[in-house]
């Protein structure tokens, strides 16, 4: 009888311990959290598979193309330079994170707006990502770039290297950026530097 009580107590204690570990030890962090490298506009962020550089950030109501696409809010267009370091790499994850830690995905609407990037090793790739966002997403926005695409449970880039680049939009600049009317000509992504025509 005493043995039965002891083993019952042991089982209950083990279950309690499991519950405590589950509730209070950050297992999710060690199992899921990506490796984040932060950066800013104009400086390359070096990941183990690629270098990510944000070269310019634009805000416009209209992206030129065939046909021109008006935004629902405003287009936040992020120009990037991407370089695979050691092997050919497909990067499919490019999304925005705002100051409130909310996520915003890129639009595939403008024909020149990229949603992913196929990188040949050592060959610089130029790509622009277009985000159709409301005003609240602009201030403090960051571009996150990684290999796995964004999904609502963010499982595609677990334990992968992620570049997190501050786009340098201060809260005080948002009104001016929102008021801009100049349409933007987005260039086709690829290995040709912007401003240089294909040979």
């Amino acid at each position: 009888m005493r043995r039965t009580v002891a083993s019952a107590a042991l089982v209950i204690a083990a279950m309690g311990l499991g519950r405590l570990i589950n509730d209070h030890v950050p297992l999710g962090d060690s199992a899921d959290r990506p490796f984040v490298s932060t950066g800013e506009v104009g400086r390359p962020v070096v990941l183990d598979y690629a270098e990510v550089t944000v070269t310019a950030v634009h805000v416009t109501p209209t992206v030129m193309g065939n046909p021109a696409s008006a935004s629902g809010g405003r287009w936040l267009v992020v120009d990037t330079e991407l370089l695979a370091r050691t092997r050919p790499t497909l990067m499919s994850g490019f999304f925005l994170v705002d100051a409130q830690d909310h996520r915003w995905i890129a639009s595939t609407r403008g024909s020149e707006c990229a949603s992913s990037a196929s990188l040949s090793t050592g060959v610089r790739h130029y790509a622009s990502f277009c985000f159709d966002v409301p005003r609240r997403a602009l201030g403090g926005a960051r571009l996150v770039a990684t290999r796995g695409a964004w999904t609502s449970h963010e499982s595609e880039f677990r334990r992968d290297a992620v570049a997190d680049v501050d786009l340098g939009i201060a809260g005080s600049e948002v009104d001016d950026l929102w008021a801009q009317q100049e349409p933007l000509d987005v260039r086709e992504s690829g290995p040709v530097p912007p401003g240089e025509a294909r040979r």
Binding site: T108, V133, A137
Partner: peptide
């Protein structure tokens, strides 16, 4: 249209 951002 393939993906939506909220609030638009």
């Amino acid at each position: 249209m393939s993906g939506f951002n909220p609030g638009l």
